[in-house]
């Protein structure tokens, strides 16, 4: 449904998106995560054909957005993080305007408005002015405006910011309903636990680069992420690294020892036995919970390690050459 290839976007003096490529299949809800300034909003605006990239290709439902952005707009709904409403208009007028401006026939507008209002639970507030709505209701109205023309793709930038837990849960339910009706959603948010409620996949952006494109909570092939707690970790890292089938040994942010092991109960049992036989005082040995938050942090740490390794290799390289010379 969404295909992005080698996308680059510049602001004066800054590369905001650097060679970003990914695919999103139809009927998925994909989380777009990353720290502030990672390029999430820029990516969403570029996908919405609101800003033009420096290079790269974006295909939405098979259409190249650079060739016909107006046609693509008909398939898209977009909710900006700083959305605005026509404060002096009523909810019905706001929805009617958006339905009309998306080319809905005048005979169908009333029914379209009613459907969008019902979906967002605004059907009892149709005659209330936008300026009189609470924060949560304003958010709902903005989403109703974005989906009033039944787009195939919905792009949402921080849709839950400022909402109370109840409203967030209602929003999650709505997103699942929209997905079940065939819509593809790309949702950017900082609140990872909330994204976990409805997202099936995750795109991670950092410094304008896509650092990972994963399924949420998905195990990698036939491997499993494990967590080890010991009384004294002296020498344990080296010991683990030498064990058969163990990869990627590291400290997690909560100072546990983490590693990747085969997703096989017998092999894990043998590994634990070996550790105990070697005299390691094991407190706990268990599969690591791979929630979205942890997945995100792991990827960030992994990327930082990769960068550090690269830097070290680059610094060592010339010295070695010098010694050899």
């Amino acid at each position: 449904m969404i295909k992005v290839r080698d996308l680059c976007f510049d602001y004066p003096g800054t590369r905001a998106l650097d060679d970003v490529s990914f695919d999103i299949k139809a009927g998925n809800i994909v989380a777009l995560v990353g720290p502030n300034g990672a390029g999430k909003t820029t990516l969403l605006r570029t996908l919405a054909a609101l800003d033009q990239p420096v290079s790269g290709q974006i295909l939405l439902d098979g259409k190249d957005i650079s060739e016909n952005p107006r046609e693509v707009h008909q398939k898209l709904g977009y909710l900006s993080d700083f959305f605005g409403l026509y404060e002096e208009l009523t909810v019905a007028q706001c929805l009617r305007f958006h339905a009309g401006s998306h080319g809905i026939n005048s005979e169908d507008i009333a029914a379209t408005v009613e459907r969008a209002a019902r979906r967002l639970g605004l059907d009892d507030r149709l005659h209330q002015k936008a300026k009189e709505l609470s924060r949560g209701l304003r958010q709902r109205l903005a989403i109703a405006q974005a989906i009033v023309h039944e787009p195939k793709i919905l792009l949402l930038d921080e849709p839950a910011s400022g909402l109370d837990p109840e409203a967030r849960h209602a929003l999650a339910t709505l997103f699942c309903q929209l997905r079940d009706q065939g819509m593809t959603l790309l949702v950017s948010s900082h609140i990872l636990t909330e994204l976990e409620e409805y997202c099936s996949h995750m795109l991670m952006l950092r410094h304008g680069k896509l650092i990972a494109e994963d399924g949420v909570g998905q195990a990698e092939n036939d491997r499993c992420d494990m967590q080890l707690t010991v009384v004294d970790d002296d020498g344990v890292m080296a010991l683990l690294s030498a064990c058969d089938g163990v990869l990627d040994v590291r400290y997690s942010d909560d100072q546990c020892i983490c590693f990747s092991a085969p997703d096989d109960a017998l092999k894990q049992h043998l590994l634990l036995k070996e550790l105990i036989d070697q005299g390691v005082a094991v407190v706990s040995f268990k599969p690591r919970q791979t929630d979205m938050h942890r997945q995100y942090l792991d990827k960030v740490q992994q990327q930082e390690r990769d960068v550090q390794t690269k830097d070290v290799e680059q610094n060592i390289g010339p010295d070695h050459k010098g010694q050899e010379a």
């Binding site: 707009h73 977009y78 900006s80 605005g84 026509y86 404060e87 401006s101």
Partner: peptide
Amino acid sequence: SEVRDNTWDAQRMSAM
């Protein structure tokens, strides 16, 4: 005012 009140993007994405 559309730009100031953040409604301009929605207009730019309309079918008009």
